[in-house]
């Protein structure tokens, strides 16, 4: 049986390691709203925040340029930084970039996300969605994002931090599809539902 569990609820006796859970007295409890699949003993958080990890691909906006680094807004409590010493791109305040997390560390009395290999993205639109919904937006083996790209002719880059960049094509339809996925990530048969939506509303 699959059911929605709320923070503080015991998911199961015994220990399951998953984001959005904690262990107390040899039992696993939820710390965020999520779905527990009892058969597979699998917990999927429905709410939650992004914890930066090495190798994460993210999308952000340049906030300021300091002497030794660019500061990047990642829709997260932590700022991203790009050390100008290592990176040769010329960036300006307001530029949208895609980059990879190199490390998450303390720097200048604050925790920062050190980014590498920034690539500037020109124009377009940014959506901030819940980071827990990112895997659903991408879909197994990119199925979900591929079908949106094909139907809308939009270029789409999904950052693991929950920021999505869209450009060209039918941006309104792509936005609507992503919004629907965000709201219904816990519903089964979502890929077909989105497929129908794209067919019905596509130009």
């Amino acid at each position: 049986m699959v059911e929605i569990v709320l923070p503080g609820s015991k998911i199961t006796s015994g220990i399951i390691k998953a984001d959005g859970t904690y262990i107390e007295n040899d039992s696993t409890y939820a710390s965020v709203v999520g779905i527990f699949d009892e058969e597979k003993r699998h917990f999927i958080p429905l709410e939650g925040l992004w914890y930066p990890k090495e190798g994460d691909r993210v999308v952000g906006t340049i906030v300021t340029r300091r002497i030794s680094a660019y500061v990047v807004d990642l829709n997260s409590p932590y700022k991203g930084i790009i050390m100008t010493k290592f990176e040769h791109s010329r960036l300006e305040e307001g530029d949208i970039i895609e980059a990879t997390v190199r490390e998450f560390k303390e720097f200048d009395d604050a925790m920062v996300v050190v980014l590498t290999r920034p690539k500037r993205l020109f124009g377009g639109v940014l959506l901030n969605i819940k980071p827990t919904k990112v895997p659903r937006v991408i879909g197994k083996g990119n199925t979900m994002i591929d079908q949106i790209t094909q139907a809308t002719k939009c270029s789409i880059i999904v950052g693991l931090n929950g920021t999505v960049w869209l450009k060209g094509g039918d941006i309104n339809l792509a936005t609507e599809a992503i919004k629907t996925i965000e709201l219904q990530a816990h519903v089964s048969g979502l890929t077909d539902k989105i497929k129908n939506m794209l067919e019905k509303k596509g130009k």
């Binding site: 923070p7 503080g8 904690y22 958080p45 709410e47 939650g48």
Partner: peptide
């Protein structure tokens, strides 16, 4: 609970 900030209980 709505925010997704992890909490031990409501």
């Amino acid at each position: 609970a709505d925010s997704g900030i992890p909490i031990r209980d409501i």
